[in-house]
Design a protein around this nucleic acid. Structure first.
Lengths: 232, 232
DNA sequence: TGTCTTTAATTGGTCAACCAATAATATTTT
DNA sequence: AAAATATTATTGGTTGACCAATTAAAGACA
């Protein structure tokens, strides 16, 4: 049950608020760039607790279309009402993601991550990478292997010097993990994994981004194929 | 002030809870996979309101490392304590992202988005794309142009059939927008933008992913260059 | 009349009490 | 003694009240 949204949308109270804001925009009662109703007022009008209103506002703020000022109020982004409605609509429709999309996205981000790492990694990064790989090898036959692999990839993301990509991987990787422990994927370690990690390290050290990217693709190919056939 | 984290980290009460959990794991008092302390208990121990504890738990749940069960308690992910600490540490360190990383990530996601759209878009998607472009052209000399452009790109993301990428773009695009309205970027429309959109549409319709990707790169090149020189 | 000061109302942020569901314990029954 | 049942305690979820800061309004003064 992977989520990219902070809130569980089974709780309809929050989406009720979002829907109401959507309607207010639709009716022209809430102009883009203007202050939106006070939390208490909205809560009373919709007969929901103020907590839910605050949750809705927080989610909108997360997506950058609302800015809340303490003891003053909240304002909605000054973009056209059609765009606003589209954004809110998208936010409400955010639910659980399918496994394949998660894996596909991870593949993309990991490939870009390692490509950037080739350009930007310094000696310290490469040292950390080698250490993470050693740690991975030491735990190769233990259940910790999966987590050590995760750490290995996080070190690469760190070396990419792009905190946005790093955070995005941070978000989706645990979701993927929880998915394939239930599907009993990766229960037995493959010896090829050892070499694949080493190839990636060598490519980064040699600053060969093409080699690093293709090595990363190969490394994640089994997961990708697995996700693809799960989809069907 | 772009954030990828739902919570404002200026409020130190929440990070105080995260730090405490980190310490508990460090001291071995909180074992991976076990139940973590009750919200009330933590709140009292740390002399903070339960709201802050709940915020911390919600953030950890967002990143998939805790799961909360109503009227029962919350459990922490059953991964090795080193990995857990790394995740919590990363979460706490999430702050504002630099503009360049945001733009770089957007470029990556947009290119992949349009590549997938070439493979997966159906007639309905292409129709919506043409409509969005027409809408863009109609507002080319109005301040709405920026939002219409945003919608155009969202239609592409929709056609990519990858909701994870779509959501990620949804998160970072408003941040980028707010950045370059303050920097007075894109204040005057460039005629080339019109043709660039059209080239992308044609490439998608012709299922030519290489053309579509390079067209997208070209389309975002001005923004990318702008972000690059802002970085210095 | 116009400006400054003071006061009252409104706002988001925080907290503590309450609710229903769960888990643990005590009690009864077989 | 063991199992089933009833009771109590604990849990996350929710609500309403309170707090300090801000804003709007009213009043005083020039």
């Amino acid at each position: 049950m992977p989520m990219l949204s902070k809130f569980n949308h089974k709780e309809n109270a929050t989406v009720k608020v979002l829907k109401h804001l959507y309607d207010l925009i639709n009716e022209g009662k809430l102009k883009p760039g203007s202050k939106l109703p006070a939390e208490r007022k909205l809560a009373e009008e919709l007969c929901v607790g103020r907590t839910h209103v605050r949750n809705a506002f927080a989610e909108l703020e997360f997506y950058g279309i609302v800015k809340t000022f303490p003891q003053s109020g909240s304002v909605i982004a000054a973009i056209h009402h059609n765009a606003l409605q589209g954004l809110i609509s998208d936010i409400m429709s955010i639910e659980n993601y399918d496994f394949f999309s998660l894996v596909e996205t991870r593949l993309i981000l990991e490939m870009e991550s390692v490509r950037l790492a080739c350009e930007r990694a310094d000696e310290k990064d490469i040292e950390a990478l080698k250490l993470a790989h050693k740690d991975y090898l030491d735990n190769f036959h233990s259940p910790r292997r999966v987590e050590k692999d995760m750490i290995f990839h996080r070190v690469i993301a760190q070396a990419s010097r792009n905190d946005v990509i790093k955070s995005m991987l941070l978000i989706i990787t645990p979701d993927i993990l929880s998915h394939y422990v239930t599907k009993d994927f990766c229960s037995t370690p493959l010896p090829t994994d050892k070499h694949e990690h080493q190839i990636i390290i060598d490519a980064i050290e040699a600053r060969s981004s093409s080699k690093a990217v293709s090595a990363m693709r190969l490394h994640l190919d089994r997961l990708y194929t697995f996700a693809k056939q799960q989809k069907i």
